[in-house]
Design a binder for these strands. Structure first.
Lengths: 151, 151
DNA sequence: GCGTGTGAGTTTCTTGAGGGAACTGACGCT
DNA sequence: AGCGTCAGTTCCCTCAAGAAACTCACACGC
């Protein structure tokens, strides 16, 4: 958790960051997404401190992004899985990945490829307009107050 | 900057977070995007400490996401603007906003509306497949190693 | 039954980033 | 001369991140 609380700002970006924007949280979600679900696996893969991992997992579970479930009774063992809410966050992660591939990959090329099962191809995520389907660019939209403004 | 350096992980998400994932950075980019470009405006709007704002702006400029330019000669006054690299990050912000609207807005409704100039409507950002154009869901893709894996 | 190993955390300690508030410096206004 | 504005700096204090050791419940091999 950051020092400042983003959660009660009247901004969906700030509120999302409050849930999943702290350092490590997006990477934890990415790992769970690609199948790294157990505490020790996560700790090793990320190089995160165990204390912080505990705290982040608890927070993400608390916000309904991850679900903790027991996969062994004796000994008691747990793993984490994405909830539907968490699964939708992967769309944001894919958009981030597109940007990172474009602007940070360099000579070596992208570290990962995404294969879309329904079309079978290597694909990228694109951000498009929900009405006209065109690519949505930041300089082609106007941000206006919505009903939930000034919370 | 976080304690741990995400920049040299072989992951476009981690690298992107290293550039723009620290606390406050996405909100600074959002503000510049919607026209809040000056130091004092940003400080007031976000409630961020001036020290941290200075540091974040410098970092974002250093990574080529923002550009600092003088808009007055005497007295010397500066403002910040998105570079093309920074402007593309707004697509990520719009995807984040979609998620936040869906999962955090509640009764009051979304704090902001996005009007797409080319179609004139209030729209949302959707994440779609670059090949087949379908909505791209996290559970419909496989993540494979790319050429830049294992950096 | 005893030592070893494993998974899933806790605890302790140290360091350093974030928050707050005051200060600086160049200039404009009256 | 004095006040206000913008764009930062500087200072101090607190609290979160990192590292490493410790705990606890159990399984396994001998």
């Amino acid at each position: 958790m950051q020092r400042t609380d983003f959660g009660d700002m009247a901004c969906s970006i700030a509120r999302t960051l409050d849930i999943a924007g702290e350092p490590w949280s997006p990477l934890i979600i990415r790992d769970v997404w690609v199948g790294i679900r157990r505490f020790d696996e996560l700790q090793r893969d990320l190089g995160i401190s165990r204390k912080v991992l505990t705290e982040r997992l608890g927070r993400l579970v608390g916000h309904g992004v991850l679900e903790r479930r027991q996969y062994s009774d004796r000994p008691p063992r747990y793993e984490y899985a994405l909830t539907p809410k968490g699964l939708e966050l992967t769309e944001v992660l894919m958009a981030i990945r597109t940007w990172g591939d474009r602007w940070t990959a360099g000579e070596a090329g992208p570290p990962t490829l995404l294969r879309h099962r329904s079309c079978g191809e290597h694909v990228d995520a694109e951000v498009r307009c929900s009405r006209c389907g065109e690519l949505l660019h930041g300089d082609e939209v106007d941000v206006e107050d919505g009903p939930g403004a000034r919370a």
